[in-house]
Amino acid sequence: MTTLRIIAFGYFVALMIAASLNYIPGLTDEDGLAFGIFALDIFDDALHVASALWALAAGLISHRASRIFLLLFGALYLGDGVFGLFTGYGYLDLGIFTNPSAGMSFTLVRVLANLPHLALGGFALFAGLKLDRA
Score class of each variant (00 low, 15 high):
Leu85Gln: 09
Phe83Ala: 15
Phe38Thr: 12
Thr3Ser: 15
Ala124Gln: 02
Ala119Pro: 04
Asn114Met: 07
Pro116His: 11
Ile37Lys: 12
Leu21Val: 03
Phe35Ser: 08
Ser51Met: 01
Leu78Arg: 13
Phe38Leu: 14
Ala65Ile: 02
Gly74Ser: 04
Leu60Lys: 13
Leu71Asn: 03
Gly84Asn: 12
Pro25Cys: 01
Met1Asn: 10
Leu15Thr: 00
Ile37Cys: 10
Phe73Arg: 05
Thr3Phe: 08
Leu56Lys: 09
His48Glu: 03
Ser105Phe: 00
Pro100Glu: 15
Ser105Asp: 09
Thr87Cys: 10
Gly122Ser: 09
Gly90Ser: 07
Ala124Ile: 00
Leu118Arg: 12
Asp132Lys: 15
Gly84Pro: 02
Pro116Glu: 05
Asn22Trp: 03
Leu92His: 02
Ile6Ala: 14
Tyr91Val: 01
Ile24Val: 11
Gly121Phe: 01
Gly103Val: 01
Met104Glu: 10
Gly95Ala: 10
Pro116Met: 03
Asp44His: 15
Ala18His: 13
Leu76Pro: 05
Ile61Phe: 11
His48Tyr: 08
Leu112Met: 05
Ile68Trp: 07
Ser20Leu: 11
Ala127Glu: 02
Met16Glu: 09
Ala46Asn: 14
Ser51Glu: 04
Ser101Thr: 03
Phe126Asp: 03
Gly122Ile: 01
Arg64Asn: 13
Ala124Gly: 06
Tyr89Glu: 13
Thr3Pro: 13
Ile37Glu: 07
Ala55Lys: 03
Leu70Gly: 07
Thr107Arg: 14
Leu94Asn: 14
Thr2Pro: 11
Ile42Phe: 14
Tyr77Leu: 02
Asp41Ser: 12
Ala119Met: 12
Ala75Asp: 09
Gly81Phe: 04
Leu27Thr: 04
Ala50Trp: 00
Ile17Gly: 12
Gly74Met: 01
Ala75Pro: 04
Ala113Tyr: 06
Thr2His: 13
Arg133Ile: 07
Asp80Gly: 08
Ala52His: 00
Phe73Ile: 00
Leu33His: 10
Arg110Ile: 01
Arg5Gln: 05
Val82His: 07
Asp41Thr: 03
Leu47Gln: 09
Leu56Phe: 06
Ser20Thr: 06
Leu94Val: 04
Arg5Leu: 05
Val109Leu: 15
Ser105Arg: 09
Asp132Cys: 07
Ser66Arg: 04
Leu112Ile: 02
Ala102Asp: 10
Arg64Cys: 09
Gly81Asp: 09
Phe38Cys: 09
Arg110Met: 06
Gly59Asp: 06
Phe123Met: 03
Phe12Asn: 13
Ala50Arg: 05
Leu76Val: 05
Arg110Gln: 06
Tyr89Gly: 08
Leu125Phe: 00
Asp29Gln: 08
Tyr23Val: 08
Ala18Asn: 13
Gly32Arg: 10
Phe38Asp: 13
Leu47Asn: 08
Gly128Tyr: 00
Gly36Trp: 02
Leu33Phe: 05
Ala134Trp: 07
Ser101Arg: 02
Leu112Glu: 06
Ile6Cys: 12
Ser101Cys: 02
Tyr23Arg: 15
Ser105Ile: 00
